[in-house]
Nucleic acid binder design. Sequence first.
DNA 1: TGAATATATGTCGAAATTGACATTTTTTCA
DNA 2: TGAAAAAATGTCAATTTCGACATATATTCA
Lengths: 103, 103
Amino acid sequence: MNKEKQMKLEASGWKIGSVDEFLELSQAETEFIELKLSLSQNLKERRQSLRLTQKDLARMIHSSQSRVAKMEAGDPAVSIDLLVKSLFALKTSKKEVAGMLPH
Amino acid sequence: MNKEKQMKLEASGWKIGSVDEFLELSQAETEFIELKLSLSQNLKERRQSLRLTQKDLARMIHSSQSRVAKMEAGDPAVSIDLLVKSLFALKTSKKEVAGMLPH
DNA sequence: TGAATATATGTCGAAATTGACATTTTTTCA
DNA sequence: TGAAAAAATGTCAATTTCGACATATATTCA
C-alpha cells in the first residue's frame, strides 16, 4: 500500500489503523513541539548575543517581559506566531529561521 | 552606529528614531505575512497532490472543513501553529518546511 | 557583601483563534 | 447538461493566547 492510499484511508476515519493514526499524530505533535523549542532557544541566544534585555525585546514587539520569559522558556501556551514575530523583530533572516527547523 | 547599538536604542522607546522603528516593524510584519501565505500555498498544493479533500485533512487534524479552507485561503485569522501542525500531519519534513520560507 | 538589574513564575480579564455549523458557490464527471 | 462532491464564506460560543501586573528568584558588579 503506497503512502497516498494509506493517508487517504486514515483520513477516512477510525475504521482501520487507529493505532497507526495515533502514532502518526504523535509524530506530528512531537515535531511541532521540537520546532517550538528550537525557536525558543534560538530566540534566547539571539537576544542575548544582541545584549538586549527581555524588557527591551518586549518593547520592540509591544509585549511584556513576562511573556518574553515564557517564550524563551518554551512555555506551551506561547504561539509559534509570537516566536516568529520576535525573531523577525530581531532582524533574523528567513534563511536563519529556516536553519532552525531541521534537526 | 552598529546594528547592535541601533537596536538597543530603538528598544529603549520612542524617543529617537520612531520612523525607523516604524519601518522596521513593518518589515518584520511583512515577512511574517509572507511566511504565512507561503505556508498556506504549500499546504494547499501538498493536500491536493495527495488527493485529499479539505474534509479529509480536517479529520486528520481534528478540525473542520471550513477552517482548512480558511487556512488555504491565507485568512489572517489563522495561526502559523495550525498551518505547521497541518503540514506535519501530511508528513512534511522539516527540511521541506524550511524550504517554504520565502526567498 | 548587598543593592540594582534581570529573569522566572503565577494570575487574570481582554483579545484572538478555534471547531462547528449553515449556507452559498464552484468544480467534477457521468 | 445536472446532480453530487468539493470548496468558499459567514457566524458564533468555547477555548486559547494575549499583555499586563505582582512578586519571587537569580544574576551582576561596584
